[in-house]
Amino acid sequence: MPIPACPVVHFELPYRDAARVSTFYQTVFGWQLQPMGPEMGNYILATTSTCDSSAPDALRGSINGGLFPLVPESPLQQPSVVLGVPDVREAMARVSAAGGQVLGEPMAIPGVGDYVVFVDPEGNRLSMLQPLMG
């Protein structure tokens, strides 16, 4: 069975100062930033384009992202991309079989889907997301 192509669906960047990083990306690039609060780990959603809109100025093929608090004692606190996968457990098995390392178990993100971090054989931190259906 062929492996489905898995697109980049999201990006993530670490931050040290939420107000500073929000001001920077809003001022320089016009991003809309939405703090999710402590109940969501102080994650900040970043809307970079109206890619899902039917508006005439919508940028097709663009992705949005998020910013997460830097935790210096945690490994691999670096920018990364999130790949959309149809089945996160099958993709985890493929990562391991191909020489990558899955870090932990999938985390259920309410209203979004199942998310897990992995490291490719070159040491790059990436993530996978199996979106909720519907």
Rank of each mutant, 00 (worst) to 15 (best):
G104E: 04
V21E: 06
A46F: 00
P72F: 08
A58E: 09
R89F: 12
S62W: 11
V95C: 06
G37S: 11
P7C: 08
M92V: 01
M36Q: 14
P7K: 10
I44G: 00
N64E: 07
E12R: 04
G37M: 12
A19N: 13
S53E: 06
D87G: 11
I63Y: 04
F68D: 06
G61R: 05
P79F: 05
V95K: 08
T23P: 01
T47R: 01
L83N: 03
L76A: 12
P38Q: 13
P14M: 10
H10R: 03
G30E: 05
V28D: 11
Q101P: 07
S22F: 07
V8N: 02
S22P: 06
R89T: 13
A93K: 13
S49D: 07
S22K: 08
G84R: 07
Y43F: 13
L13C: 09
E105T: 03
G37H: 05
L103Y: 00
T27V: 10
G66I: 02
P72K: 09
D57S: 11
V28H: 06
P7G: 08
T23V: 15
P7W: 04
Q26A: 15
V8S: 07
G104Y: 03
V82R: 00
R20T: 14
S53Q: 03
F68S: 04
E73Q: 11
E90Q: 15
P79C: 11
S22M: 10
L83A: 03
I63Q: 09
Y25V: 07
S96H: 13
D52I: 05
V71T: 12
A58Q: 06
G30W: 05
T50L: 09
I63M: 03
Q26L: 12
I3V: 15
E12V: 07
V21Y: 06
Q32G: 07
D57P: 05
G104A: 03
E39Q: 14
G99V: 03
I44T: 08
S49T: 06
L13F: 10
L13R: 08
S96T: 15
V88W: 04
T50E: 12
G61V: 00
S74H: 11
P86C: 09
D17K: 10
Q78N: 14
P2I: 10
P75F: 12
C6D: 04
W31A: 07
V85W: 05
E39G: 13
V85M: 02
V71Q: 12
V21G: 00
G30L: 01
R60G: 15
I3C: 11
L67Y: 08
G37W: 08
S49A: 13
C6A: 10
G99P: 08
T27W: 10
I3F: 14
P7I: 10
Q26S: 14
A19W: 04
G100R: 05
R94I: 07
Y25R: 00
P35K: 08
D52C: 11
Y15G: 00
D87A: 10
P56V: 09
L103R: 02
E12S: 06
S54C: 15
Q34R: 14
S22Y: 04
G66Y: 01
L59Q: 15
L67P: 02
F24K: 06
E105L: 09
G30T: 00
E73N: 08
Q26I: 09
S49V: 05
L76R: 14
A97M: 03
V85P: 01
L45N: 02
M92T: 08
G66K: 03
F68W: 12
P38H: 14
L70I: 10
F29P: 01
